[in-house]
Amino acid sequence: MSDPVKDWPLYEIFIRARSGLDHKHVGSLHATDARMAIEHARDLYTRRQEGVSIWAVRSNDIVASDPAEAEALFEPARDKVYRHPTFYDIPDEVKTL
């Protein structure tokens, strides 16, 4: 007999701390529905923090970049030095740039 625990979908959890600026991936958990996922995330990942924001996303719904593509996706950016502020030579007299 198959055990329904297999059927509880996997959710990825992202938490933003009260003092934080963005949601960070903290891990995953199993839940049957969105409401349960949030409650489980609260009990599992926020026992030591207050005033957090929780995002729960079905793992299947996440689209991720492929590590094999990393070179193609990200290498070209390393050559584009003109995007970095240190590339530009601003005279010292101009203070606020």
Partner: peptide, 8 residues
Amino acid sequence: PALEEDLG
């Protein structure tokens, strides 16, 4: 019944 409920 499940680990998550232990925590709950």
